[in-house]
Computed example of a mutant assay.
Amino acid sequence: MKIKEESIVKPRPTLDLLNEEENIWNVELPNDYKKFLINYNGGIPEQNSFNVQSRTYAIDRFLCVLEESDENVESIYDIDVTLTRIEERLTTNEDLVGVELLPIAILFNGDYVCLDYKNVNKEPRVCLWNHEESGELDPITYHVANNFNEWINSLK
């Protein structure tokens, strides 16, 4: 995976910060995704396209994790900021503590790639969340890959 070095959002998250976020989101992030965030926080991939349901999608950039989003110009790409904007559209349960779908990348068309924690025993699948078809408490998703590594390796 090649990420445009100048696009990486700094400061990069620490393992402690990621552990705090896991507690807030009430999920366990895959280790490969944690390593990815620590190395490439919010970066723009050189190979940015993938296929889902006979369509090709392009990544605008990966989302980042920031300790202080108020003080960073890239805060619009922070996962917590993104969740604040669209979280009612990422769950079927308004009383849920944590997340069912965790956005990890924004696409050029406004959709998001998410880690899907809805029906998971251990490692979340990767899905595409369709912003146009989804409504409040009615997320529409499409399966992309069985795990984060599989999806990253499929990028063209």
Rank of each mutant, 00 (worst) to 15 (best):
L63C: 10
P139F: 02
W129S: 04
F62E: 09
V113F: 07
V113S: 03
V99Y: 09
Y33M: 05
T56G: 02
L63E: 13
C64L: 02
V113W: 11
R89W: 08
I79V: 14
Q53E: 15
P124N: 08
N26E: 15
E71Y: 07
D60L: 15
E132F: 13
E68P: 01
N149K: 06
P124V: 01
I44W: 07
Q47K: 13
W129L: 03
N26K: 14
R125F: 06
P45K: 09
I3W: 00
L17T: 01
T82H: 14
S75A: 14
D32C: 11
N51T: 11
E68Q: 05
N147V: 00
V120N: 15
E123C: 01
E5D: 15
Y40S: 08
S54Y: 11
V144A: 03
I152Y: 10
L107Q: 06
K10A: 13
N119G: 05
E6H: 12
D116Y: 02
E94M: 10
K118S: 02
R85I: 03
G98A: 12
N149P: 01
D80V: 01
N153I: 05
S75H: 10
D78N: 03
P45V: 00
H143Q: 10
E71D: 14
S49L: 06
L155T: 15
V65F: 07
L101D: 06
I24G: 09
Y112W: 04
G110H: 05
N41P: 11
N48W: 14
